[in-house]
């Protein structure tokens, strides 16, 4: 028995498609972005923001809020769209994405958008930052949780494993890492680059509790989040196997950098069955 009703799943999937359409629109408008990286993690963000994270649009700096770190900063348009849909940022800002002076730059910047927990864009930073933040919160007796969304390519970075070691040593049970495993890096396939080894096994060998799920399934994500923390005293990781969610962009590394043409934008919106968030 799942933790989420079918009606809610359908509702959240519609939101996910709207977020996806918004990302494609933003990439088209700005002729910019890492579209595939933004699209593959949409359901993860929707499940987090609509089902799990304790964050309040009216009090985003609440000390007891859950901390969310967009470690895969290059895929940030989906986070921007989620923040707009949740009312945490003004939806008008989406139209300014990646333009000069925008609070929504190509890679997320905490100086421009203070609601972020951290700036990102260089991989392999936020897991370590989150471990330090959780350690500090524990010293203060603050029970807030932290979620770090990473890319599969990011797990090539040695610093991820330095942080993984620390998180287990310090028993950071309030830490959840989610790896968006879309299997596509900038110029190669993750499985090939990592030698066809299992990421969840690597995390387990570092003392983490790990689960592998379909990262595009709202229901699997909801169930998995419901079971957090997976094991006592251990940090948790979800290896979320994902697809891009737009048929003509699947399994095509070109879409790491490419932005859509007008025709491709219309085709994507048509396939998704949802219009982008209106910014006007």
């Amino acid at each position: 028995m799942g933790s989420i009703e079918m009606t809610e799943i359908n509702e959240l999937q519609k939101i996910a498609n709207k977020i996806r359409a918004t990302c494609v629109q933003m990439a088209f408008d700005a002729s910019h972005g890492h579209l595939k990286s933004a699209l593959s993690c949409v359901e993860i963000l929707v499940a987090l923001y609509w089902r799990w994270l304790k964050v309040s649009p009216s009090n985003p700096a609440d000390p007891h809020r859950d901390r969310f770190y967009m470690s895969k900063g290059h895929g940030v348009t989906s986070l921007y769209a989620v923040l707009a849909e949740k009312g945490i940022i003004d939806r008008k800002e989406l139209a300014m994405y990646a333009k000069s002076g925008s609070c929504l730059p190509d890679h997320p910047c905490k100086h421009m958008l203070p609601v972020l927990e951290a700036s990102s864009g260089s991989l392999g930073h936020c897991l370590g930052i989150a471990t330090g933040a959780l350690y500090a919160l524990r010293l203060k007796g603050n029970p807030a949780r932290a979620v770090v969304l990473m890319s599969d390519g990011e797990c090539n970075e040695g610093s991820v494993w330095e942080a993984a070691m620390f998180a287990r040593a310090q028993k950071l049970e309030n830490l959840l890492a989610i790896v968006d495993y879309n299997d596509m890096q900038a110029v190669g396939f993750s499985d090939e680059i990592m030698g066809h080894t299992l990421l969840e096994e690597k995390f387990r060998s570092f003392g983490w509790a790990a689960k592998r799920i379909n990262g595009n399934s709202i229901s699997e994500l909801a169930d998995c989040l419901e079971s957090f923390p997976f094991e006592k005293d251990k940090p948790s990781v979800i290896v979320a196997k994902t697809k891009v969610g737009v048929s003509f962009m699947e399994k095509n590394i070109l879409w790491h950098y490419r932005t859509p043409s007008g025709e491709e934008l219309m085709a994507a919106i048509d396939e998704l069955g949802e219009l982008p968030i209106q910014t006007g």
């Binding site: 936020c126 370590g128 471990t131 330090g132 933040a133 942080a163 310090q170």
Partner: peptide
């Protein structure tokens, strides 16, 4: 107790963890 942390031979982690602590108001 708790304010001395041996991160291990993991300098990148030492720096990132310090950043996380500073973001939460500490002075590492």
């Amino acid at each position: 107790s708790g304010r001395y942390i041996n991160v291990g031979v993991a300098e990148a982690q030492m720096i990132c963890a310090a950043a996380g602590m500073a973001l939460e108001g500490f002075r590492p």
